[in-house]
Design a binder for these strands. Structure first.
Lengths: 209, 209
DNA sequence: ATAATATTGTGGAAATAATCACAAACTCGC
DNA sequence: GCGAGTTTGTGATTATTTCCACAATATTAT
């Protein structure tokens, strides 16, 4: 394996592999194969082997992969062996739901700060967090190096994204249903349930009602 | 344009175009071009034109596209000119957040039913909905032809998915952080914030703390 | 009218991604 | 220790996707 840029499409599959492997681990499975893992994530065995070969040789012929070891490798590759601090911006229903979600910590993330622009919310408690003022984002470099989950209304998203970029945020998980324009060195991942539903609606044959 | 199967990758971009166009419409923009739209969704102009050419000729040389007309075409193509009934299964924080989200209706969807397995929740009111018993999903064909947003814990997701498949559900928006095994004619879209965060963590250079 | 400018739709080229297929290496049972 | 059965990692092939470039057509300015 020579040192070259790994295609995005491969990187994007690694978390899926990791999730499946951790699920196996929870069920006390110690060993798997590209075949087995592939059947569990609906990806061909060859594809999985090719993907992993970008980063090293983690398997053993005849046996397959040690689940725990492969998890460790993937966590290292994805840089989630340690825990990243993440801020939530916008404490509506979605922001609140995220703060109450228990699934972050054991997968490499922890929410450290919550922000909103509503004076009624600022200073109030949301679970273990005290909601801070969005206006304070610019002050200090409280967000530098952090990742952000952006849960504000569509109309406010771009403006806040600009501010985040200024503050040195390099990764935004965007729940607002709009495209964000950011510099090339800032990553954005989009979560919009309607996009998901529309992608499926195309394939449905009968309409309801 | 001849009648052929449209690649998934193209279909998956159409909702993104549609969302951007509706955003333009909201701002009273009447006309756009592949160039302009492309800059707003970070996709090349040529790509957009090629994608649209799969379905017909919607633009005018020299002018570009009429926003309203292109929206109408895309809605037709995606089958979201009318409104699909969607059920929410699992009324935890995420399920509740979805029922309170106002962004579905004008994009082709409406929540009609909510289910949970917690006796304390069944029968109670959640906004305008009365929470039904998950055990009743099998009874009647209340879900036939519907789409489902699945918001149950990971451990329960596959079991419920199986039940949904039996009931004739053909589209599942899965919020549970597990892969679902379903027949080939059932579509699944995944929403897992951690997958999104991990995909970005790979590219980050400095670790926090 | 004409020239300058803008934009589409698309054939073909280039780039990227997925799949195939197999030598090499390991395990297991006897 | 040997043969049958597994499984990896990868070079080569095939398939898919993206990009380029341009003729055709429309708009705008003068």
């Amino acid at each position: 394996m020579v040192d070259r840029v790994v295609p995005d499409v491969i990187v994007s599959r690694l978390p899926v592999y990791l999730r499946a492997l951790q699920f196996m681990q929870m069920q006390a499975v110690t060993t798997t194969s590209s075949q087995d893992l592939g059947s569990k994530v609906n990806i061909s065995a060859a594809q999985i082997r090719k993907d992993l070969s970008q980063f090293g040789e983690f398997g053993k012929q005849g046996t397959g992969y040690n689940v725990e070891a492969l998890i460790a490798h993937l966590e290292k590759i994805l840089q989630v062996e340690k825990v990243w601090d993440v801020a939530v911006i916008g404490m509506g229903d979605m922001g609140h739901a995220l703060t109450r979600y228990g699934g972050f910590l054991n997968r490499g993330f922890r929410i450290t700060d919550c922000f909103d622009n509503d004076p009624a919310k600022i200073g109030s408690q949301a679970g273990q967090y005290i909601i801070k003022d969005v206006a304070d984002i610019g002050k200090g470099d409280c967000l530098r190096g952090k990742m952000v989950m952006l849960c504000v209304p569509a109309a406010a998203a771009q403006k806040i994204a600009n501010k985040l970029v200024e503050c040195g945020v390099k990764a935004i998980l965007n729940y607002a249903p709009v495209h964000l324009s950011v510099p090339a060195d800032v990553r954005v991942q989009y979560i919009d349930p309607v996009i998901g539903l529309q992608r499926m609606a195309y394939y449905l044959h009968e309409k309801n009602e």
